[in-house]
Structure formats: C-alpha cells, structure tokens
Nucleic acid binder design. Structure first.
Lengths: 136, 136
DNA sequence: GCTTGACCTCAAGTTGGCTTGAAGTGGCAG
DNA sequence: CTGCCACTTCAAGCCAACTTGAGGTCAAGC
C-alpha cells in the first residue's frame, strides 16, 4: 500500500498541509502513520479529498461531508440525501438564472436611472421576498 | 418626506433591527434622525435594503454593495461591472448545473459502489480541478 | 556531524456578517 | 405619574473553515 507524505498529498491535491492537518483534527480524514514527525496518508485519501472538494462545491458543510464516509474512508452517499441536495441546487440555479437575466437586462437598459426600469423594479420585489425569507 | 421608525423598517423589510444598526455602522445605509433614541429612516431606505439583498443574492459582499450607492443612497450601478458579475454568475450556474446533473445520475446509478461509476469518477476529476483552483 | 527546511504542536487570530448581553433611556398607554 | 417595552450603546461572542505564529523536531544532503 503506497503511502503519501503530507507534502506530496498536499501538492497532488492542491489542499494545503495546514488544511490537511485541520481535516484530520476534525476527523474528516485519517493519517496512517508517521515518517519521523510527518504524517503519511493512504493513497486513497487523495480520492477522498476530491470527494470533499466536490461536496463543498455542492454546498455541503465539512460536517455533512464527514457523514458521507464510512469509518474506513470509503464513500457512503445516501441516495435520498443526494436527491434532496440536487433539488436545493435546482432552486439555487433557478434563482441565479433569474438574477443573471435581470442583471443583463439592467446593464443594457436604456432607462435614465435603474429605478425607472420596470424590470429592475420587479427584480427588487423578488429580492425583497428572497431577502426576508430565511437563508438556505 | 415620510420617515420610518427602525422597528417599522425592520418589519417591512424583514431585516432585523440589529442588522440595520450594523448596516448603518458600516456606512451601508444612513438614518436621517431620531425619535427619542430611535433611529428613523427615509422611506427610500426600504428600496435600498431590497437592493442590498439583491446584491447579496448575486454574490456581492456588503463592501462591494456599499460602492453601488451614491452618497445620497441612490443606486449607482456601473454597467460594465454588472456584465462582469453576470458572466461570473454564468460560470457559477454552469458549474452548479453540471454538479446537479451528476448528483442526480449518481443518486440513480445502479453501480454497486459509487466508485464503480464512470460518471462519478469523471465528476471527481472535475471536483479535484475545481478544488485546486483558487476560490472565486 | 551539521545545517537545512519541511514538517510538528498548540493556541490564537482572521474574515464576514451578523447576534447577544448588560445596562441604560425615553415615548406613550393607562 | 408610573410602568412597560422597544429601543439605545458598547463590547463581546459566534460560526465555519481555515491560517498564522512561536517554538520545537527530525531525516536527509553536504
């Protein structure tokens, strides 16, 4: 079983050593030994790190992600949870799309002031609604 | 000119009084006077708050947003900047969409383990790339 | 054998966007 | 006139996800 020195893993994964130590501290990853003082990691940890960054992209917290690995570090992704998260992503994508369209419109809008533009005003109503709802 | 007590504005906008005070403290909004101790705000501030929540949705920081108002509180949205931000939103939307599709696929994927699914592995490569780039 | 440099530990600091707590004040209903 | 209650100030706290700093260790290259 090939072992990776923390520096190598860091280099390979783009995750800084301090972050790796932090991840280990919170139990997200495990080192399998030491070379002198230096942590050594299983090659599998690189895969795990890719999954972690994937999870972060999808909006999971590190704590959420922690629950997605079995004790041995292999992924354990509950399908229902994935669907839920995909739905949340859908929501987010819809909101962002609306926002982007409106921004484009406003940027090209000939109205003297943005406040004179009906689309902009509609956008603000949307924003006001979105703003007064509790954050996701 | 109609004035709003902080409580009224808070109620109306869904922004908590402490947040309003915080926004004033950082110079994002201005109160126009006091009724006893209580801050009073211009009715226009409600509009401004809608814009602020809009800006937050779009991924602007409060500091960015601060730059989007003239000293009198009227919006000053540079069109070039809007286009840039819309482009960034596009990027974000594309990434999220890819992610969502892949998540859906994985959730329904018949492979024994997620690790056996080619799509999942491709997704991880994407994640590894995205993760090692500097955060936007 | 000595230096070097990347690692080590542990505590504390950072950032953004607020919220909370303690102690005080003032307008208004009764 | 009294009590209430939403406000006030100011400092401190909170959250996640790290980073930084001080002081220490160790394997490897010269």
């Amino acid at each position: 079983m090939k072992l990776l020195d923390i520096g190598v893993l860091s280099e390979q994964s783009g995750v800084s050593p301090s972050t790796l130590r932090y991840y280990e501290e919170i139990g997200l990853i495990q080192s399998v030994g030491r070379h002198g003082l230096r942590r050594q990691f299983d090659a599998q940890t690189a895969t795990q790190l890719a999954l972690i960054s994937l999870g972060k992209l999808a909006g999971f917290s590190l704590d959420d992600i922690k629950g997605m690995f079995a004790k041995d570090g292999t992924p354990r992704l509950p399908r229902a949870e994935l669907h839920l998260r995909a739905d949340a992503l859908d929501e987010q994508i819809r909101g962002l799309t609306r926002l982007r369209d409106a921004m484009r419109h406003v940027a090209d809008c000939p109205a003297e002031s943005h406040m004179d533009c009906p689309k902009f005003r509609r956008l603000m109503v949307f924003a006001a609604r979105a703003g007064s709802r509790r954050r996701v």
